[in-house]
Amino acid sequence: MTTPVAGVSAWNLPNALTVLRMLVVPFFGWLLLAEDGQNVALRWWATALFVLAIATDRIDGDLARKRGLVTDFGKVADPIADKAITGMAFVGLSLLGELPWWITVPVLIREWGITIMRFVVIRHGVMPAGRGGKTKTALQSIALSVFLMPLWTFPQPDLWQALAWVVMAAAVLLTLVTGIDIALKALRLRRTSDRAAMK
């Protein structure tokens, strides 16, 4: 776990990249949903913007750690930015009928439920994204990236669809498992934090 450095301003490059990732969400959503998702060029632009936004997640984290710019704001905002861009992809694909809602709804409940829980327990301590959460985000990103592409234009589109579903299944399973793990850690934090000990 990387500890925030005392005296470091939240106004720094890693946090700016995190905020930028949040700001591109509506543009990404528009590109994905325009013309019912059937415009090949717009689908490629949507995919490119999604991949670029996800790439900044790794970049801002590395920058923050290497330059000693880790802040509580970044530790809270970073997973929110991840959930915003991936959540838009899940919802957009379900609105287009390309991803079942029975996948999207449980994933969103887990993602935003955990985010709300982080804010509930923030008085006891900040819960940064763990290794399992990062792996989950990576799997989601790969699966969503493939789903976002105009697969109907690919040679052997069924093969690409099958690949996307295999990765998506793994991502959804890890999403639910890590959600349970984080919930247990939050309960433990509430019981063992300095604030809890003072009561």
Rank of each mutant, 00 (worst) to 15 (best):
D60W: 09
D57T: 10
L144D: 05
I114W: 09
A89I: 04
K75Q: 14
A162Y: 14
V126S: 01
H124D: 11
Q156I: 12
S141E: 03
P79T: 03
M149V: 02
T71W: 12
G97E: 00
I85T: 14
I85V: 10
V76T: 12
M88R: 08
E98L: 13
I85G: 02
V70H: 07
A84P: 05
L139Q: 08
I109R: 07
I80K: 00
G68K: 00
T137G: 08
D82M: 09
T86N: 14
I142P: 12
G68N: 05
G61A: 12
G92F: 07
I109D: 07
T104L: 04
F73P: 00
M117Q: 13
A64F: 10
Q161P: 00
I59C: 01
H124L: 04
G97F: 07
T56W: 03
V105R: 01
E98H: 10
G61C: 07
G132K: 06
P157C: 03
D57P: 11
L63A: 04
G113F: 10
G87P: 07
Q140H: 15
G133Y: 01
I103S: 06
I142R: 10
A64T: 01
V91P: 06
Q140P: 09
L139D: 00
G130P: 09
K66P: 07
L93P: 02
P100D: 06
W102G: 04
W160P: 00
A162Q: 13
D57A: 01
I109F: 12
L108P: 05
E111Q: 14
P79R: 09
L159E: 10
M88E: 10
H124W: 09
I122L: 15
V70Q: 08
L139Y: 13
I59A: 12
E111I: 06
P157I: 07
T137Q: 11
V120E: 03
Q161S: 09
M149K: 05
I103D: 04
G133D: 13
T86D: 12
H124P: 08
L159T: 13
P157Y: 04
W160I: 00
V70P: 05
F154D: 06
V126C: 05
F90H: 07
I114S: 03
E98R: 15
G92I: 04
G130E: 15
I122N: 09
L96R: 02
W112A: 02
T137V: 14
L69Q: 15
E111T: 06
T115D: 06
L93Q: 01
L69N: 13
K83Y: 11
A77I: 11
P100Y: 03
R65G: 04
P150L: 03
M127T: 13
Q140V: 05
M127W: 03
Q140M: 09
F90Q: 07
V126F: 01
G87N: 02
P100W: 02
G61R: 10
D158L: 11
E111Y: 08
K75M: 13
R67M: 13
G113K: 14
S141F: 00
T115Q: 11
A143K: 02
W102Y: 11
I80H: 07
V120R: 08
I85R: 06
F147S: 05
V126M: 02
W112F: 15
A89Y: 01
V126Y: 05
S141W: 00
A77Y: 14
M149L: 15
L99G: 03
L108T: 02
L93V: 05
L93T: 02
V126L: 02
S145Y: 05
I109A: 15
D62L: 13
L108V: 05
T115L: 15
G133V: 13
T135P: 10
I80S: 07
I142T: 14
G130C: 11
